[in-house]
Amino acid sequence: MYGMVNKSVQELVTINFGVDKWEAIKKKAGVTVETFISNESYPDAMTYGLIGAATEVLGMSADEILFAFGEFWVLNTARKDYGDLLSSAGRNMPEFLDYLPTFHTRVALIFPHLKPPRFETSDRQDDRITMHYFSHRPGLSVFVRGLFSGVAKLYDTPAQITQTKFKDKGADHDEFVVTWGAVDQK
């Protein structure tokens, strides 16, 4: 998993719950890394361990944490660390979502060892788009829903995100339908 993901979990916890909670989570998860390097690769088990420990330390469900984490990633971590690139990825939310598959393809080409997820789009209409999420990492669909929600907030666009296919229920990938109101897409 990208270091940027773990780094984001750290920031989410420390900003909202304090450094002590983060240290408690790290201790519980057996993680000793002091600072995560964004484009370094870390074991997936470390990220899952941190999220698992966070549910116990913070007394929140895994879904609550993953969703909050997804939103936080876009609105805080990505905006802070990749702000210029993020704001260039689209002038509005639909454009951003259109560009997401290309963005991840480019990342995969630049950093193949990071094994980023793959996105596809379909059913692009003026007020909706269907996002397909392919990943070998299980259990992150709620996190992706949080990401889409964060993107909607980033562009100040009220949107509804509905998961329509579930990999953990037998589908070959996760699918989300994102709908929004009228957006000036010029």
Binding site: M4, T35, F36, I37, N39, E40, R106, V107, I110
Partner: peptide, 20 residues
């Protein structure tokens, strides 16, 4: 665009490394 993404990601990582 690949160049820009590479520059951005590398720059962020360098920032992380400096912090570390």
């Amino acid at each position: 665009v690949d160049l820009l993404q590479l520059v951005q990601l590398t720059s962020t990582s360098l920032h992380d490394a400096k912090q570390l």
